[in-house]
Computed example of a mutant assay.
Amino acid sequence: MKETRDKARELMKGYCRVCRVCDGKACAGEVPGMGGLGTAASFKNNVTALARVRLNMRLLHGVTAPDTAVSLLGFDLSMPVLAAPIGGVSFNMGGGVSEEDYIEAVVAGCRNAGVVGCTGDGVPPVIHESGFAAIAGSEGHGIPFIKPWEGAELDEKLDKARATGCTLFGMDVDAAGLITLRQMGRPVSPKTPEELEAIIARVHGWGGKFILKGVMTPDEALLAARVGADAIVVSNHGGRVLDHTPGTAEVLAGVAAAVRGRLTVLVDGGVRDGADVLKMVALGADAVMIGRPISVAAVGGLQEGVEQYLAAVRAQLVQAMILTGSPDMASVSSCILFQD
């Protein structure tokens, strides 16, 4: 990955330093860009919270070839990983590659690696248009995330997303704090339970499933289940919308316990390698979303870069499963975590 990371560092200069450890320190306050909002406390908390989770090493067992595969939300995945919805190459990543080439690399690279890529939304229109085109070009193998727009824009984009052939639809309600969009005359806002219920009923009427991203508390997880969501993403939007939130690894176990068996629980925030994936699953997630590292891989190496990165994550996951005595993902529980 060194060549890919070096190329990304060159192309993303001024927007992302492609640090050896992506922890939010060097890019604090750089939004737009790849940093965290304000002090970047939320971004940093994602990384430090996950780093505090420790694994029990166990080697008196017969696990030599663990099975990393999972099935969820209609997809058979080679490992419990999805690419988080990130767009805006020109103002977040330096514009070294086009929006179209970037998101096609993410979606196609994920598909070839046996996982799923999610696409983003925003302003300018090329963000969602490129994402929808990439999913359509991948025969519906992708998840479009649509921001919580006010007015007709939300309905129009849901219709466009449906035309891609996708079976899963996402809303990153955690984007509701992006006041810049309101200043541009394109407001986003929180959604009431009644509004969400109507949106989800519409998607279910198409035979699709709905993911609600941006749930950080058990009560809102329960609310998501009550209005019919099929999955939630425990997420603070990568620390880019509200400063001083806890890291997702701090709240995941409580959120997952509240809705266990009622919906699929995904999580993002600070996931960098296969051991991090295993930790999040042990804390209660069914799968994880990886954001910034996949963006760096896509900018630096396009589809090949994404595939290389995901191959490395899977190899690290296999190693961590062997060293914790985990034969498959279904067997992973909090028992593999060290408790003080």
Rank of each mutant, 00 (worst) to 15 (best):
R162Q: 15
G170S: 04
N46T: 07
C110F: 07
P144K: 05
G131D: 10
G177A: 05
L37Q: 05
A152T: 11
A275V: 05
V281L: 14
V31Q: 03
L337S: 05
F169L: 13
V259D: 01
D230F: 03
G261R: 09
V227D: 01
M79K: 02
P80W: 00
S326H: 00
L59K: 14
A201D: 14
L77E: 01
S138A: 15
L317N: 02
E104V: 10
Q316Y: 06
G274E: 06
F132G: 04
G284S: 10
D174T: 09
T68S: 14
P124Y: 11
M34Q: 11
G88D: 08
A221T: 01
D286F: 10
D268Y: 05
V123H: 09
D101I: 12
S138F: 04
R58Q: 13
I211T: 01
T4P: 03
V81Y: 07
A84D: 09
I322H: 07
I336E: 03
E250P: 00
E304H: 12
N236R: 09
A113P: 05
A161K: 01
L283D: 05
T119D: 00
A231T: 03
L59G: 11
K213L: 08
L60V: 15
D174V: 06
G109D: 07
R182W: 09
S130I: 03
D23C: 08
P193S: 10
P80N: 08
V296H: 02
L317P: 02
L278D: 01
G88N: 12
A315P: 05
A315H: 11
M171V: 14
P80D: 04
V21Y: 15
A49H: 11
G177K: 06
E129P: 06
L323A: 10
G270Y: 02
D328R: 13
H244V: 11
G88A: 14
T164H: 06
K44N: 09
L252N: 03
G74H: 11
V241L: 08
M216S: 11
Q339S: 14
V18I: 13
V299K: 03
I294Q: 00
A26G: 09
R262P: 03
S334L: 10
V116H: 00
V234S: 02
V63E: 11
V267R: 00
A40Y: 04
L181F: 15
V277D: 02
G208C: 06
E197N: 07
Q316D: 15
V306M: 07
T217N: 10
D328P: 08
V251C: 04
G14N: 06
E307Q: 12
G170N: 02
I200K: 04
G96A: 13
D159A: 15
L252E: 00
G301K: 05
L60M: 12
V81G: 01
A113Y: 06
P190D: 06
K209D: 08
A49K: 09
